[in-house]
Design a protein around this nucleic acid. Structure first.
Length: 513
RNA sequence: GGUAGCGUAGCUCAGAUGGUUAGAGCGCGGGACUCAUAAGCCUGAGGUCGGCAGUUCAAUUCUGCCCGCUACCA
């Protein structure tokens, strides 16, 4: 029995509404999780919410509610997003849960007992008005503190530090000897560059006088732990009792690769004598209509409404199709609409109806047996072998856009194949030879579509299920034995008509954009 | 300022561990067809692969410098 495949996303910070970036990361992880399940592996897929910290506390105070009440509200909106995008996570961790707090405190205590956490002092400038610490880069060009900070005072604060620096040599060696640790590879350089400089130890606490909304240090009740020990530990705390560690993939954005995930997290684990995760899968950022995604303009949240108009699967498809994992991509309603119409409605959806109609007309809806396979059929089958190999390789590398590219080459080839065969002509012929060709043509397209829908299931689960059902095929449970060209659809009854991707009218304000 | 990434057809982007005429989709022009969600197919136009220099028999692909954009760090 192989070890279960454990995949996570970063946990979202509970301060604000879910937006495109949140959704994308879940979709990417979900596609990989579904792929692995179809490959027959047992999968554990975790996502969750990061609920502590200054900003949450501030917002709660502002709204005059308990922080827990506030994050409970936020959690609902994020979980609703997961449902909207058909995310198949097996667990949802919230950092305010007892199971999480217990592990965080255990980690901290163990490191403290080993002498890897120590108390230190640091002198800082503090802005009372903004309630934040300042650094030299906050100064204006004359070296003064800008007006917005109000009175700035110098303070000395005691805090706890984790001896991060002593794990630096190990980390460099680990990254160099595990080329798959950071995917895509080019991100690795960035991390190794960062590691050329000596690291500072990591400040891991805040005094309760400043921050109460956090997990208390087990060895000093006057402090809570701050950010990284709280947030990163979720990956472990969620499966602490399940024996699933190490994680196979942490799906994260490029902004939190270095230092948090590529430096702090592996060093924390090393200090605790726990294996590091196998891989960090680092995706880029979406811009919205060529502009940076912004909470203030709300552009990143508004895009999510396309789930309602076009459906979760179409949205998932677009996200997977248009972003090369690791690079940035631009999201636009226009591009979304074009992809939807062209690739989903016209290429794929219409192809399904071409088949259904012809099978209905010539065979009373029963898929015929391929009676006369010739060169045309053979070359399509050969193309499938290539396509299958490319698609699976792309999934294995988490390069979903490559899988879709290859798949659409095959879909186009099927449309071209139909035109070459011209089954509407064959259907008018009374010659047995033509009838045999017609049999083959429709059987071939049916089988091609079955294969496409099978392998496309991780990306568009509902649509593929519907497609398979409409061509009389069984739902996909596993890829095993399902990806080879076969005649399983022969004799199956197809439905009359199936609109997988109905035309969607653009909203009035978008039509002019 | 340092580091990394990006800069390829009108648009959005793939790709090349250096090697025949650099690819796709969309958009645009032309054509034949009609089974289908006015979809599909064929075909054409369109690029000195950011600029300069170097290494090489050969560079868009490697190296250096420069320019522009982005991110991280200081």
């Amino acid at each position: 029995m192989p070890r279960p495949f454990y995949i996570t996303t970063a946990i979202d910070y509970a301060n604000g509404a879910p937006h495109l970036g949140h959704a994308y990361e879940k979709v990417l992880a979900d596609v990989i999780a579904r792929y692995q399940r179809l490959q027959g592996r047992s999968v554990h897929f975790l996502t969750g919410l990061d609920e502590h910290g200054q900003k949450v506390q501030q917002t709660a105070v502002k709204r005059q509610i308990e922080p827990q009440v506030f994050v409970d509200e936020i959690a609902v909106t994020f979980q609703e997003m997961l449902r909207n995008f058909q995310i198949s996570n097996d667990d949802y961790i919230r950092t305010t849960e007892p199971r999480h707090k217990a592990v965080v405190q255990d980690f901290l205590q163990r490191l403290f007992d080993q002498g890897l956490i120590y108390k230190g002092q640091k002198t800082d400038w503090y802005s009372t008005r903004q309630e934040q610490f300042l650094t030299d880069k906050d100064r204006d060009e004359n070296g003064n503190w800008p007006e917005i900070f109000g009175e700035v005072t110098q303070t000395t604060e005691e805090n706890y530090y984790f001896k991060l620096s002593q794990f630096q040599p190990w980390l460099i060696e680990h990254i160099q000897s595990h080329p798959d640790f950071i995917n895509p590879r080019f991100r690795q350089k960035q991390v190794l560059e960062f590691l050329k400089e000596p690291m500072n130890d990591l400040c891991i606490s805040r005094p309760k006088s400043r921050l109460t909304w956090g997990i208390e240090l087990p060895f000093d009740h006057n402090f809570v732990t701050y950010v990284w020990f709280d947030a990163l530990t979720n990956y472990y705390s969620a499966v602490a009792t399940k024996g699933l560690w190490p994680a196979d993939i942490h799906v994260i954005g490029k902004d939190i690769l270095s230092p948090p995930h590529a430096v702090y997290w592996p060093c924390m684990l090393k200090a605790l004598n726990i294996e590091p995760p196998k891989q960090l899968l680092v995706h880029g950022w979406w811009t919205i209509n060529a502009q940076k995604a912004s909470k203030s303009t709300g552009n990143a949240s508004e895009t999510l409404s396309l789930v309602q108009s076009h459906g979760a699967d179409a949205f998932r498809f677009y996200l997977c199709r248009d972003m090369v994992v690791g690079q940035d991509a631009d999201f636009s309603v226009k591009t979304f609409g074009e992809r939807y119409k062209s690739e989903l409605s016209n290429n794929l959806g219409n192809l399904v109806n071409r088949l259904l109609n012809m099978v209905g007309r010539s065979y009373a809806g029963i898929i015929p047996s391929p009676a006369a396979d010739e060169e045309l059929e053979k070359s399509l089958k050969d193309l499938w072998v290539i396509t299958e190999r490319k698609v699976l390789a792309a999934f294995e590398e988490s390069q979903i856009s490559h899988a879709l590219e290859a798949l659409w080459v095959f879909i186009s080839a099927m449309n071209a194949y139909i035109d070459t065969r011209a089954p509407w002509k064959l259907a008018k012929s009374t010659e047995a030879v033509d009838r045999a060709k017609l049999d083959s043509c429709l059987a071939t397209v049916a089988e091609g579509l079955r294969l496409v829908a099978t392998v496309l299931t991780p990306i568009m689960p509902s649509t593929c299920e519907k497609l398979l059902q409409n061509i009389g095929a069984d739902p996909v449970r596993h890829f095993a034995g399902q990806l080879a060209w076969s005649n399983v659809c022969v004799g199956r009854k197809v439905s009359e008509r199936c609109i997988l991707f109905p035309p969607v009218d653009p909203k009035p304000e978008e039509a002019t954009a």
